[in-house]
Amino acid sequence: MARRGNTSPVEVGINYVVLFGFAVVSLWPIVSILAQAFGPSDASVAPGGLHLENFVMAWSQGQFSTYMLNSVLVSVTVVMVSVALSVPAGYAFGTMTFRGSTWLFYLFLFGIMVPTEAILVPLFFDLRQLHLVNTVVAVAGPQVAQSIAFGTYWMRTYFRSADRAITEAAIIDGAAPRQVLWRVQAPIARPAILTLVVLIFMWTWNEFLIPLVMSPTGTLRTAPLGLAFFQGQHVTNYALMGAAAVTVAAPVVVVYLFAQRYFIAGMTEGAVK
């Protein structure tokens, strides 16, 4: 299936070697942590077979049941709030003309560049004053704000290129603006919204610094933090560490394997546009 006729078989061969080598290097750390997770935990355990008891141990002893539940709570909150708010904001920027729209949009765009490291320390001390540290508000809040910055930009890009004829038809049929957005435009925008959902889910699930700072007592310790905490206790028990690490990574990896094109589209196009 050579696209250009004059590519020699030698070159095609080189291509396969490059592909293979690259794939091996990419997979090596992943395969080794999987081997660690499913391997025997110490010499007293019979070698061979899949040692699923490592996962049971990590889940119960390492309190990963609690950590995973915290992660679900935080991720669902961040995804739902930021998508529900980004879609109308992006719709307004993408389809309506109004005073101040340009600089207001740039203000949102600016947020994509601001590193967490710059805002987290003052935010922690201000929220502590308000007795909000160790709550969902403190852990989810900054992540909602960051996701809104990206989400508004992402949805604006989509709605700018979306078909307006259908909106005008709906208005002639007597639909109110809110109905036009949620009943007419949003269903058509599903691929763009789904991309936004999977990206925000991934960022929130994998986030480390924000829950570390915002939940100092560990009441809202999310899965990645649980792993860091676990490492402090079981640093030499590689099987347990592996099982815990695989557990933490699994939800996003599974979603990625099923919704791969949304991930790649979002992370590459989101930056190019």
Partner: peptide
């Protein structure tokens, strides 16, 4: 320069490190 088979699988694999939590990547390394 030349299209090869298995490019789709290759893309899935080389993009994988991007979606794994950095904490997990750090434990593996």
């Amino acid at each position: 320069r030349a299209q090869v088979r298995g490019l789709g699988f290759f893309r899935t694999v080389i993009f994988l490190p991007q979606v794994i939590a950095m904490v997990v990547v750090a434990v593996a390394w």
